[in-house]
């Protein structure tokens, strides 16, 4: 099984829009971003299986076997 990781804005550079990461039991968001070469301070917003929250906390949440993540760098507008 693989986790679907949606990437946005400059996180797509060299990685693509959607990346699949092999699932391992107990894996967290931190494991996923480590595999993608993204560090926590680069992330402004993070959604794990449809739930958002503070980035540091969300990176410790175990991901479902068929789950997904959406990762955003600092973006804004209005």
């Amino acid at each position: 099984m693989a986790i679907k990781v949606k990437l946005f804005a400059n996180f797509r550079e060299g990685r693509g829009k959607i990346v699949e990461v092999d699932y391992t039991p107990g894996m967290t968001g931190q494991d996923v971003i480590d595999s993608l070469g993204i560090t926590a301070p680069e992330i402004a917003a993070l959604i794990v299986d449809g739930v958002d929250g503070k980035v540091d906390a969300m990176l410790t949440v175990p991901i479902k076997e068929d789950g997904y993540m959406a990762i955003f760098p600092p973006v804004a507008g209005g």
Partner: peptide, 21 residues
Amino acid sequence: GVTGGGLPTYGTAVLVNIINE
């Protein structure tokens, strides 16, 4: 990161995906 990165590169349109998600 926003005013020196996200906004100059993508404009305010960069919000579409994050708000949708």
